[in-house]
Design a protein around this nucleic acid. Structure first.
Lengths: 253, 253
DNA sequence: CGACTAGTTGAGGCCAGTCAATGTTGGTGG
DNA sequence: CCACCAACATTGACTGGCCTCAACTAGTCG
C-alpha cells in the first residue's frame, strides 16, 4: 500500500483491493464542479487536495466499505459508479442509492462512527479518501468548503426523502420512469447524453432499488418499449419520448 | 411578534401562528440530553442558548414551515411532536418522518436554501428556532457542537435509509410492527413507558408513513390484537408481547 | 342533536409477486 | 477464435397481498 502524500494521520481503509496512487489533483479533476471542491479558491483547493490520503482504484464488484466498518473517511467518487445497500439481519437487502462520479459516499457513517450500509463498485472505479477529522478541521477555516459539506449531506437527505415518496406512493411503472429520468438528468449534468446511456446495474439491482422484483422490472422495460417510449437492448437504453415519460409520472391514478 | 433576546439577525419565520417567548434555556431543558446541546460545557450551552431567536408554541395542525419556504433556521422540538411530509406536484403526499421532542427539524432545507417538505404539529408543541448561519458560526468554535450537528444530520440519513428498506422490502405487517417498536424505543428514551402509549397520528397518517392505505393499517391493528400481541383502543396502544412482535420482523418470508 | 371526522369491517378486484421455462450475453479457458 | 458455462434477462401462467369501494359505528364539537 503506497503512502499518502502526507504522513497518514488516519489508517488506510482495510477493504480496498487494488490501491493505486493516481497522479491527479482536485484542481484538474473532471468532477471539480460537482464535488466538495466546487467554488473553492485555488489555494483552498490545494489544501483540500493535501488531506486526501489516497486516490484508489476499486474493481467492479469490490466493496469500498462494509456495514459496521469503522468510519474515518468520506469517499469522493472520481470515476465510475457505486451502489450502496443496507443489509437487514434477516438477510434482506435494499439498495439505497446509486452513485456516480462527483458524489460523496459514507455520510451515513458519521452518526455513530460506523458505516451503516455497504458500498459496492458497479464498474471499475476510482475514489478519493477524505479523512473526516481533517476535512472537518479544514472546513473550520474554509466557509465555502463547510457549506459544500453541509449541502452534500443535506442533499442526501432530500434524495432519500424523494425515494421514500417513490417507494411509498408510486406504481411500478412510475418508479421505473422516474429512475430513468433521474439517470438521464445525472448523465446530462456530467456531459453525457441524457437520452442514450448504458445501465450499470442488473435488473435485479434496479428492482431492489425501486422496491420491486426483477421480473417486474423486465416486464416494464418491455412494456415501455412496446408503447414506444423506450428502446431497450439489454442494458443499453434510449429514451425515445422523455416528455411522455414525464407525463407518465404526473398522472394521478 | 416578540423580539428575540438578541437583536434578530435573521427574520422570524412567517408561518408561526401562536408565538410565545418561553422562559426556558438549554441548560434547564428536559431535552438537553437528546438535543444539539448534549455534552456541551455550561458556557457553550449558554452561547447556544443565546443564538436561539425564538421559542415558539405551535398549535396542533399548524405548519412550522412549508415546502419552498426560505431556509434560515433549524428547529429543535422542545415539546410535542411533528410529522414531516413531502408533497408531489400531482397532489400525492408521503409522510417522511414522525418527530418527537429533542429532534431537529429542517435539515432538508440546507441543500438548496429552501425547505423541501413541510412540518406539521401533531399536537400543541414548542420549538426553538436556531438560525443556521449563527449555529454554523458557533459550531466553528465548539467542536462538540459541530459534532452534534453532523451527527444529527447523519442520523437523519440513517433513519431515511431504514425507511427505504422498510418501504422497499417489507410486508405490511412487518412495517406496522417495526413502526410500533420504533415508537416504543423512542418513548422509552424519553422516560415514558415503552409498552403503553397513545398514538399522535391518525390511521391515515400511519398508513402514509408506511406506504400503505388506512384500511390496511386498521385491519393490521385488529389482526395483531386478535393474535394477542397488542391491545388497541383507538389510538391507545399496549404492546402485550414485544418479543413476538420482534420475531414477526425477523421472519424471512 | 346533527354534522363531521376517525375508525372498523366486508366483498371483490388488480397490480405486482411467485414459480418456472426459455432465451441471451459475456467472460473464460482450451 | 470459438465453445462452454454461468450469470443475466425475458416471458408466461398463476397467486395473493394489499387496494378500492362501500357500509356502518363511534366519538367530538359546535
Amino acid at each position: 500500500m503506497l503512502a499518502g502524500r502526507l504522513p497518514p494521520a488516519v489508517p488506510a481503509t482495510p477493504n480496498v483491493v487494488s490501491i493505486h496512487e493516481l497522479k491527479a489533483h482536485c484542481n484538474s479533476c473532471s468532477m471539480r464542479e460537482l464535488c466538495l471542491s466546487v467554488g473553492l479558491e485555488p489555494e483552498a483547493m490545494r489544501q483540500l487536495d493535501e488531506i486526501i490520503t489516497s486516490r484508489t482504484r476499486i474493481k467492479k464488484r469490490d466493496r469500498l466499505y462494509r456495514p459496521g466498518d469503522r468510519f474515518t473517511v468520506l469517499y469522493a467518487i472520481r470515476l465510475g459508479s457505486f451502489k450502496t445497500q443496507l443489509l437487514a439481519e434477516d438477510g434482506r437487502e435494499q439498495i439505497t442509492g446509486y452513485h456516480m462520479a462527483g458524489e460523496i459516499l459514507g455520510l451515513d457513517g458519521i452518526s455513530d462512527g460506523h458505516y451503516a450500509c455497504q458500498a459496492v463498485a458497479l464498474e471499475d472505479s476510482e475514489v478519493c479518501a477524505l479523512p473526516f477529522n481533517q476535512l472537518d478541521e479544514l472546513a473550520h477555516d474554509l466557509p465555502r468548503l463547510r457549506r459544500n459539506l453541509y449541502r452534500a449531506i443535506s442533499k442526501d437527505i432530500c434524495r432519500d426523502q424523494d425515494m421514500m415518496l417513490l417507494l411509498g406512493s408510486r406504481s411500478a411503472e412510475e418508479r421505473l420512469a422516474l429512475f430513468l429520468l433521474n439517470l438521464a438528468d445525472r448523465y446530462h449534468a456530467r456531459g453525457y447524453s441524457s437520452s442514450e446511456f448504458v445501465l450499470r446495474m442488473t435488473r435485479e439491482e434496479i428492482a431492489s432499488y425501486l422496491g420491486l422484483k426483477l421480473e417486474t422490472v423486465s416486464r416494464l422495460f418491455s412494456h415501455l418499449q412496446e408503447i414506444g417510449l423506450l428502446q431497450v437492448q439489454g442494458r443499453a437504453i434510449k429514451l425515445l419520448d422523455p416528455t411522455a415519460l414525464k407525463q407518465l409520472i404526473g398522472h394521478v391514478r
